[in-house]
Design a protein around this nucleic acid. Structure first.
Length: 665
RNA sequence: GCCGGCGUAGCUCAGUCGGCAGAGCGGGGGAUUUGUAAUCCCCAGGUCGCGGGUUCAAGUCCCGCCGCCGGCUCCA
């Protein structure tokens, strides 16, 4: 029998190939493990050179296994215990099975047809079809009870390897039509395993806990429909979601997190702050900006324009529609039609509303003969585009049918590519920093199999992307072959205040459109050349970004972009005159000020301003009138910040804004 | 688009078994002149998403449409 070497901690030993990990642990006198982290020995020795990342971003064969799994190769094996992060993965997976078992006990084993039951970021789900049963949210507590009961039974979990024929026979008997499909998709030569707990058997490759009693705290969260295999031509299964953690405290924290998410929902904030609305009679996914929101948006747009101008971008404006010949040349009618609004006929011509700005910017480029001396050209537009999105995916400001991109096209020579990318990337990061997005993930996507463009250009472009990222000292992931067919790209995902990631910036090369539109410039050699074109957006969609920022800040926007920065609250109406004087002074100093002249009590005025999340309230009464001062209350601080002269307060605001904008100053 | 849930006043929601459509907030008017998150009183707001059907009678039951919400491979 073949021997393998196993290292556990600072000890090692020889075992027969195929010894279950649990037995190995027993030999090393390790107790209480629920699984193992396995690293093949060969992989440990192999150094991974950084340059190789592009060619091989795949992880090693290491992974999380359960105690039943036979070890087939020499490896370092680390026990995983209850309470550990790696253990969560195992536990959640087992909970998915416990859910399936609960369903089959409640509704009958042969009535329940199981789909897939994987773990998720915070729990697990199982896709099921139950004959004659449509589950409702109200059914969840009952299922949850059953699951708890199964956990209490503490059933040992067995791992059994089956031949393809045995597996097929078993799942045919159980009426598991979806599992049979899965078996057919398992590649020849790969092991087929089932896991058994009590009399419940499920096709699964594991890993699983040693017994059901080792499961942690969980809660079934909701039900949703999900296509089998995610394909709309397949039956719709019922997906039951659960969340699971080791401790009650972690579970509670997560449920609190969900509450926080709800509280920050930009749709709710958008209504409360009177920022935007969506009108049924206008159309789904089409945004109406209310005055307060419009001001917020205008401030954002002004800021973007200014920052682009400072960095050598030139403004362009383009129309919302264009003739079909344009979209034919660009290839949109061929490859993007299902995302475009339907055509409009006029004067024997067919027009389309634009889903992208690029063809228009290219037309501007082509409006005259271009020389290398003008390069790099950077065209910028807050360009409004319309895209047909499926009605089911529309979501507040985050997913809409009409939106405005902070869109730019950089057109340059090969020599300029590297510095242009670096500048664009740095620009994007500076802007993100202004909004308090200091943590991000950077992804570089490389050439997919089906693509256009010369090898040389792909190489130049991809290297420029990598160089820009490494020069700026950023970590990045490579999405091998994940680029668009027309060029490689960098995507930036930012982390918000409660840890969620949002994809915002993107920098993409385009080798397709310059060819299609035959873009050229005259080089120093007096001959025509094909320029490089880079498409980039910092915030992506203005609508989406304003929504993301609302969620990130929980509606408490930075001072510089708050539609109302200050509200003056006179205590009694004999203070109105002075309050108006204060407001005037601040307006003259360039701040956005409101004044509450209603006959409400001070408490009510404060509450109203608090709900509108106005950053600063100035309370003026007898004392302030006499001393010509204002009493400042900060929204963020939720209390009185002291009394000062109006000039002092203006200075204070100025400093605050300067600090907020320091990333771009 | 598909599955499930939902759609009642500007907002949040109640409305039993099919029997005259409600509350709070917000809005308007009045009183009150207030010191750090809601002063009191009065009043006006509705094609119960839209269209059709069943019924003596529909917010309520049935059908169609529109919209909103949660989801739609995170590979056994």
């Amino acid at each position: 029998m073949e021997k393998i070497k196993v290292i556990v901690g600072d000890k090692s030993g020889q075992f027969e190939k195929g010894t279950p990990i649990g037995e190995i642990f027993k030999k090393f006198n390790i107790k209480g493990a629920i699984g193992a982290l396995v690293k093949p020995l060969e992989e440990i020795k192999r150094e991974e050179p950084k340059e190789d990342l592009l060619k091989d971003s795949k992880a090693t064969d290491s992974g999380i296994f359960d105690l039943h799994t036979p070890l087939e190769f020499s490896a370092e094996v680390k026990p995983i215990y209850k309470g550990s992060k790696e253990g969560l993965e195992i536990m959640r997976h087992t909970l998915a099975h416990i859910l399936a078992q609960a369903l089959s006990e409640l509704y009958g084993r042969t009535k329940v047809h199981l789909g897939i039951g994987p773990t998720t970021e915070n729990g697990f789900f199982y896709d099921v079809e139950i004959e004659g049963v449509h589950l409702k949210e109200e059914d969840l507590p009952k299922i949850e009870e059953k699951m708890k009961e199964i956990v209490k039974r503490d059933l040992p979990i067995e791992r059994i390897e089956l031949s393809r024929e045995e597996a097929k026979k078993l799942f045919k008997e159980l009426g598991e039509k979806y599992k049979l499909q899965i078996i057919d998709r398992i590649p020849e030569g790969e092991k087929i395993t089932v896991y058994k707990q009590g009399d419940f058997v499920d096709l699964c490759r594991g890993p699983h806990l040693p017994s059901t009693g080792k499961a942690g705290e969980f809660k079934l969260s909701h039900i949703a429909g999900a296509y089998w295999l995610g394909r709309s031509d397949q039956p719709m299964l019922q997906r039951i979601y659960g969340v699971a953690f080791w401790t009650k405290k972690d579970l509670k924290n997560y449920l609190n997190f969900l509450k926080e998410v709800k509280k920050r929902d930009h749709r709710k904030l958008g209504r409360e702050l009177e920022f935007f609305t969506i009108d049924n009679n206008i159309g789904a996914g089409l945004i109406l900006w209310l005055p307060r929101g419009a001001l917020y948006r205008k401030l954002l747009e002004d800021f973007l324009r200014e920052e682009h101008y400072k960095r050598g971008y030139r403004f362009v404006y383009t129309p919302h529609v264009g003739k079909s010949v344009l979209w034919k040349t660009s290839g949109h009618l061929e490859f993007y039609k299902e995302n475009m609004f339907p055509p409009m006929e006029m004067d024997n011509e067919t027009y389309f509303v634009k889903p992208m700005n690029c063809p228009f910017h290219i037309a501007i480029y082509k409006s005259k003969v271009r020389s290398y001396r003008e390069f790099p050209l950077r065209f910028f537009e807050l360009g409004t585009v319309y895209r047909y999105e499926l009605s089911g995916v529309l979501h507040g400001l985050l997913r809409v049918r009409g939106f405005t991109q902070d869109d730019a096209h950089i057109i340059c020579t090969e020599e300029q590519v590297e510095s242009e990318i670096k500048e664009a990337l740095k620009f994007a990061l500076d802007i993100l920093k202004v909004f308090g997005f200091n943590e991000y993930k950077v992804y570089i996507s490389t050439r997919p199999e089906k693509s256009v463009g010369e090898d040389h250009r792909w190489e130049v472009a991809t290297n420029a992307l990598i160089k820009a990222v490494t020069d700026l000292g950023l970590d990045y992931d490579v999405d091998e072959g994940g680029g668009a067919f027309y060029g490689p790209k960098i995507d930036i995902k930012v982390k918000d205040a409660i840890g969620r990631f949002w994809q915002l910036s993107t920098i993409q090369f385009d080798f397709n459109l310059p060819e299609r539109f035959d873009m050229t410039y005259i080089g120093a050699d007096n001959k025509p050349h094909r320029p490089y074109m880079i498409h980039r957006a910092v915030l992506g969609s203005i609508e989406r970004f304003t929504g993301v920022l609302l969620e990130h800040t929980a509606g408490l926007l930075p001072l510089w972009i708050s539609p109302t920065q200050v509200i003056v609250l006179p205590i009694a109406d004999r203070h109105n005159g002075y309050a108006q004087k204060v407001a005037e002074k601040l307006k003259t100093a360039g701040f956005r000020v409101e004044i509450d002249l209603s006959e409400e009590s001070l408490g009510a005025k404060i509450r109203k301003a608090e709900l509108l999340k106005i950053p600063y309230m100035l309370i003026v009464g007898d004392k302030e009138l006499e001393n010509q001062t204002v009493a400042v209350r900060g929204k963020k601080e939720g209390k009185n910040l002291g009394t000062m002269k109006v000039e002092e307060f203006a200075e204070f605001l100025k400093e605050k804004i300067k600090e907020e904008l320091k990333a771009v100053s």
